[in-house]
């Protein structure tokens, strides 16, 4: 249970870790848009290169990135198979009974793989691997703050998210402790049929709920004791200031996006159908 790295934050010292999280949120959105701008071989190649550059910039081990891609492996395989067999094109590579494989099909399968994995690598490298969950919610509050004008309780949502994130490790630890305690009394979570296994969870869930509720009550009291009353007039302990360095990536991503569009138009190559 201890190995659950929520948000998958990977501690390291890198330019991406140091970058202002608000910039990273905006970059992520733009990067996603960019990945959908790609149309042909050249622009997809540029996209793939950019993902690899992001990995190098963030100093996250390749092994961890691959681990992050594992959950979507089935989706990747499935979509690429569909693309290979069902895309119709002009250059026929293989024909056997009802199976027709075209070169275009193979390309579009590769395109899909590149697009999905760079989406995941991009968001991972820009956000989850390089930003602590707490910094992320703080930044989210800032980025969404224009919505306050239309009476969306942005601060309250951010606070709820912060608290939830803050308590995930605590609850994981607690679950771990309770599981250990019940195991010491002969509980068995891995054997038996479904009904047995569900029943075996009761001795964990009940104590967990009891302590989670009492913790929530304690936290509410503690916050009230410190006169917490929502976001009105509340200041931050750590105020982030945008530095010149933080604007550079924004310029870079615009250049990157423009580059992709230009490649789509001027570089000849296989185009995604």
């Amino acid at each position: 249970m201890k190995n659950i790295a929520f948000g998958q934050y990977y501690p390291a010292r890198s330019p991406l870790h140091r970058l202002d999280p608000r910039v990273k949120i905006i970059l992520t959105i733009l990067y996603i848009v960019c990945s959908f701008l790609c149309k042909n071989v050249w622009s997809f190649a540029l996209l793939a290169i950019s993902s690899i550059m992001l990995i190098i910039l963030g100093r996250v081990p390749f092994k961890i990135i691959l681990g992050g891609l594992r959950p979507v492996l089935i989706v990747l395989i499935f979509t690429s198979i569909i693309n290979v067999f069902w895309t119709k094109g002009e250059i026929l590579l293989l024909e056997w009974r009802f199976i027709h494989i075209y070169l275009e099909g193979i390309f579009s399968a590769i395109f899909i793989i590149v697009r999905i994995s760079s989406l995941i690598i991009g968001t991972g490298m820009l956000l989850t691997y390089t930003t602590t969950p707490i910094a992320l919610t703080d930044a989210l509050e800032d980025v969404l703050s224009p919505l306050k004008k239309v009476k969306v309780p942005v601060h309250d949502f951010a606070m709820m998210m912060t608290i939830a994130l803050r308590f995930i490790p605590t609850l994981v630890e607690e679950t771990d402790k309770i599981m250990t305690a019940q195991k010491a009394r002969g509980a068995d979570f891995s054997n038996g049929n479904i009904i047995d296994r569900v029943k075996a969870l009761i001795p964990i869930i009940i104590p967990l709920f009891v302590s989670a509720f009492s913790r929530a009550g304690d936290l509410a009291t503690a916050m009230e004791c410190r006169c917490y009353q929502g976001g009105e007039g509340r200041t931050r302990l750590h105020v982030r200031h945008m530095r010149f360095k933080d604007f550079i990536p924004l310029v870079l991503i615009v250049v990157f996006g423009t580059g992709l569009v230009l490649l789509n138009i001027f570089a000849p190559g296989f185009t995604m159908s």
């Binding site: 607690e174 402790k177 309770i178 250990t180 305690a181 019940q182 010491a184 009394r185 009761i202 001795p203 964990i204 009940i206 104590p207 302590s211």
Partner: peptide
């Protein structure tokens, strides 16, 4: 038999 730390949390 292992009695964990703060074992009262195991009661259910």
């Amino acid at each position: 038999g292992l009695v964990m730390q703060y074992p009262e949390y195991q009661l259910f």
